[in-house]
Nucleic acid binder design. Structure first.
Lengths: 160, 160
DNA sequence: TGCCCATTTGAATAAATATTCATTTTACTT
DNA sequence: AAGTAAAATGAATATTTATTCAAATGGGCA
């Protein structure tokens, strides 16, 4: 099981940083990284991650993470979220986001709607959000997932 | 050739109003409408229209028009455009959009970036945009394409 | 009109992706 | 630890989508 998670994380990383136009191509990259498995599993993984296939002027069609899709649909909400974000810290594999007063519910809702697999759920107070990560997912993985949801976040993080 | 255009318009209409998850399914609907042709052509048409396939909770994956995708990416620009839009009229199969002073270039650029096949190109002055439609595309088809780019437009149009 | 070139299309096929079914692995429960 | 149910996986296969290649169609233009 630890391996599946590792694979899913690798897929997200590869798809978000490269223009991948077929499962075979993606499979090749994964194998070269030492993550060796089959097209059948990859097909399932992509469906699980809700990866889309969108038109690209260069490569015809390429895979795209749903978070990116979603996010683009919400530019306003997204920048609002970035504005209210104050900090994030981790303890015992739980994340705690501090926000400006009143911002927590809307930011948490944004995360919930995107529901990356790295995050099982969130609980929001007024200026604090508790992030419950998936097992075997590192703090850094969580942050990467959050950055995909709220790109501006990248500028607000220290040196993580 | 007239038939190809008719088909492309029908595909856009069907895809934007229904959750279509395979070419076979779409083909069935087209055939029922009297537009009879083959999967090979449909595959080409979808590629030409840059139709995406995105994750859907209900049907697994469904087709989505790129205009919708694009547009959502530009919520701010889009509402700005709607705000500046004043009217549209047609003569000799050319469209003339009147805007508030200074708005024409940005609205025209928004249309150009989305470049629906119904519109070959635009020319913008300060408060006027000339729309050059594709052959065999009706005034109404042009308006439908514009509404896909700028949804708020729908409220600003009389009874077209 | 008749010729030529480009575009469009279908049938067949290739390529890509999803699913079935059997097997293995994992995680619980006792 | 053994037993059991659920989840994950691969191999084979089915399904879906893209492409090849040949034929048909549609404009220009002499």
């Amino acid at each position: 099981m630890g391996n599946r998670t590792e694979r899913l994380l690798a897929i997200k990383e590869i798809v978000s940083n490269n223009k991948i136009s077929s499962q075979e191509e993606l499979l090749g990259i994964l194998v070269r990284r030492g993550l060796s498995y089959t097209q059948a599993t990859l097909s399932r993984d992509l469906k699980f991650l809700k990866v889309n296939k969108i038109s690209d002027p260069e490569k015809g069609y390429i895979y795209e993470l749903p978070d990116q899709h979603q996010v683009h649909n919400n530019e306003i909400a997204e920048s609002y979220a970035a504005q209210g974000f104050v900090s994030i810290q981790f303890a015992h594999n739980l994340g705690v986001i501090k926000t400006l007063p009143g911002y927590a519910p809307s930011i948490a809702s944004l995360i919930d709607r995107s529901s990356p697999f790295e995050i099982i759920g969130t609980i929001a107070g007024d200026d604090t959000i508790l992030i419950i990560p998936h097992d075997n997912v590192s703090d850094k993985d969580v942050i990467n997932a959050l950055v995909l949801i709220i790109p501006e976040l990248k500028n607000k993080l220290s040196g993580k």
